[in-house]
Design a binder for these strands. Sequence first.
DNA 1: GTCTATATTTGGATAGAC
DNA 2: GTCTATCCAAATATAGAC
Lengths: 181, 181
Amino acid sequence: MAGIVACAWELAREQGIAGVTLHGLARAVGIRQPSLYEYFDSKHALYDAMFADGNRQLIERLNAVKLSRDHRAALKQILAAFTAFALEDPARYELLFQRHLPGFTPSPESYALAAEVLNRIVALMRAAGVTAEGDIDCIVAITAGLIEAQLSNNPGGNRWVRHLNRLIDLLVDDAITRSKQ
Amino acid sequence: MAGIVACAWELAREQGIAGVTLHGLARAVGIRQPSLYEYFDSKHALYDAMFADGNRQLIERLNAVKLSRDHRAALKQILAAFTAFALEDPARYELLFQRHLPGFTPSPESYALAAEVLNRIVALMRAAGVTAEGDIDCIVAITAGLIEAQLSNNPGGNRWVRHLNRLIDLLVDDAITRSKQ
DNA sequence: GTCTATATTTGGATAGAC
DNA sequence: GTCTATCCAAATATAGAC
């Protein structure tokens, strides 16, 4: 089961998330396609298992970050870890954070994992002095914007994401200034 | 021909860009599916015609903006027009600016139209004092980040895009400060 | 230009034996 | 749990008549 999901990720890395088919997955696993229904009730159930697994991977990765005592530095660290996670596997990022799969919506249990990721990051923003919802939205959108520009124009490079820390500073400074008024 | 493309856009708005099929398009136009090959050599040729058409629509929209003499105000105007264009038709934005269609790459002629759009916007950034490539990249990525957050979390609203002007100011100020050093 | 008819491929899903 | 066999649906594309 875990092995099948791992195999599916491998296929996704090679052919994109939409390129994962039950026939292809079964071939890669070494069984016949109908046998997959022993593990997943449907294609969407497979996606959901991958969604949950990917989020668990991400949570583990974020857990592994040794956070600085300085709140702003900690925010930069966590966003850098998130960005690295996104860039190292575009197909995984696509399944977890983009909505390209027609009809797929994660189950509530899987979605809860995604929410935990966001909560974790937002908590660090708050600690760094970014408390207004609008400011939080901006940092989230900017991070995603840099990642998506990087992935679609220059996967493997850093032309866009290298500006992340600078933009965080700009935003955090501005957010703090505004919330003090 | 133009009518067929217009029909395809209508379908895209209803069902998403991936939901445009030759059968469905033929039905909407009032002909049989094989007859479409009289107008387009392939599905991708249809996409390419839509891509070119969408970019022409956007260029026309940008042309219609009465630009302020103040360069920064003009930049805000053009980015606001771009954003409004993006939000009013998510499927069109998807075809023009996201890479969700497996195997589709615009032809050089169509791509030239997209490049013209970008050049137009970059020219206004330069006029506003944003000249470094990195700063230009940041503004592009931030604009796209806000648009994509808006479209995927709250299409029809303005929770994210309402911060665009503020972020432009922040970036332009910072870019000018840096380039003066 | 438009049609009918059909080829071809791809993928998800089910039935039922072992 | 895994298999064979099959079904079904959707979609692109082509052949050839009118």
